[in-house]
């Protein structure tokens, strides 16, 4: 799963969000490392809607602006769960190996 997809699904994991809310949440989740632009966001949302990983939760007008809230589908939740599990197992293996004693280098200077 590419990072933009992972970030969008993660941003929607706890509650539905609208477009600008997603952009802000993605910046927060990635600690400001990833800033998604409007055009990129809606390209990704179109794809994720087509793949049934997300769905439109509701539409409303707030402060005179049209808001469409997106939410994870069951399929999206399953995909995010599987990706989180994969990342967790890789991280756990990396930590286990880092904790293991390092073999001494052979043939060093006397």
């Amino acid at each position: 799963m590419q990072e933009p997809t992972l970030l969008i699904l993660t941003a929607l994991a706890d509650r539905p969000r609208h477009g600008y809310g997603l952009m802000q949440e993605i910046a927060t989740i990635s600690a400001g490392r990833y800033r998604m632009r409007t055009g990129t966001l809606y390209g990704a949302l179109d794809r994720l809607l087509g793949q049934n990983l997300i769905a439109v939760d509701r539409e409303e007008i707030a402060d005179g602006r049209a808001r469409r809230f997106y939410t994870l589908t069951g399929q999206g939740r399953a995909a995010l769960t599987a990706e989180a599990e994969r990342l967790r197992s890789v991280a756990a293996e990396a930590e286990r190996r880092l904790r293991a004693p390092r073999p001494r280098l052979q043939g060093g200077a006397a």
Binding site: P16, T71, L72, A78, A79, E85
Partner: peptide
């Protein structure tokens, strides 16, 4: 039609999750 980029590991529930 585009193939699914990331099929889930287990059969997903059919309903939409809302909060």
């Amino acid at each position: 039609r585009a193939p699914d980029v990331q099929p889930p590991a287990s059969p997903p529930p059919a309903d939409t999750v809302t909060f």
